[in-house]
């Protein structure tokens, strides 16, 4: 379980996160939604120890982030994280060199699934294929948790489909996933849990199926209620 407790983060005087608390479970897809601005990415970065926090605590299966937890949680930012001159093969070799839990079989499986060629250079990848390679690098570490920052923004429809397909496949099985997004279309039926952020605080946290069953509301209905009032 990833537990975020009272997370507070300031940029200068502006509080980007002001006491954000939530949990994300293994085997569930948790979606961090915020219609405007920062906060979502910062939360993920804070979980990964890529930005210092002002207050609060973050625990990954009871541990604060450390070198061993990087074998447990993978972060897939909305950017290229490999050297552009590397080929996909070299990038995978780099990962294999450093991660004890790297699973080359799974990496190859994903590569075939995404129909990508390992001889392609990172610099030649389209935005969609970059997202896929980023996802591959995370999933092939055999991590327990995957954090994805805006995995669907600005990528083509087919890449979107493929990535969505990964979420429903055995490749995700039993892992915990946190996705940030500002639009919920396409993945509304895919997610277990929604956390609505605004102005640095959690406005609402709910389970999607429970919400449909108990109140007959879709995620967008709740978002409309919460954000627009």
């Amino acid at each position: 379980m990833i537990e975020v407790n009272q997370l507070t983060k300031k940029f200068g005087r502006k509080k980007v996160l002001d006491g954000v608390s939530f949990t994300a479970n293994k085997g569930e897809i948790t979606c961090l939604i915020g219609i405007n601005g920062v906060g979502k990415t910062t939360t993920l970065k804070a979980i990964m120890g890529l930005t210092p926090i002002n207050k609060g605590s973050i625990l990954i299966d009871g541990e604060t982030i450390n070198k061993n937890t990087y074998e447990k949680v993978a972060f897939i930012p909305d950017a290229i994280t490999m050297l552009p001159q590397m080929t996909i093969k070299q990038a995978m070799q780099f990962m294999q060199d450093f991660y004890k839990k790297w699973n080359q079989e799974r990496a190859t499986e994903l590569l075939t699934f995404f129909k990508l060629d390992e001889k392609t250079r990172i610099s030649e990848l389209s935005k969609g294929n970059t997202a896929k390679i980023n996802l591959l690098m995370g999933l092939a570490i055999d991590v327990d948790y995957i954090l994805m920052d805006e995995p669907f923004s600005g990528i083509d429809i087919f890449s979107r489909e493929q990535i969505t397909e990964v979420f429903t496949s055995h490749l995700i099985e039993d892992r915990g996933v946190i996705i940030t997004t500002h639009e919920i279309n396409d993945i509304e039926h895919l997610i277990d849990k929604v956390i609505l952020l605004d102005n640095g605080i959690v406005l609402k946290e709910f389970n999607t199926e429970q919400m449909r069953q108990e109140e007959g509301k879709s995620v967008v209905d709740v978002m409309r209620e919460v954000y627009i009032g």
């Binding site: 569930e28 969505t164 429903t168 995700i172 039926h189 895919l190 277990d192 199926e209």
Partner: peptide, 9 residues
């Protein structure tokens, strides 16, 4: 996978 829904569902 076929219905594009969460495996938990």
């Amino acid at each position: 996978a076929m219905l594009k829904i969460n495996p938990n569902t």
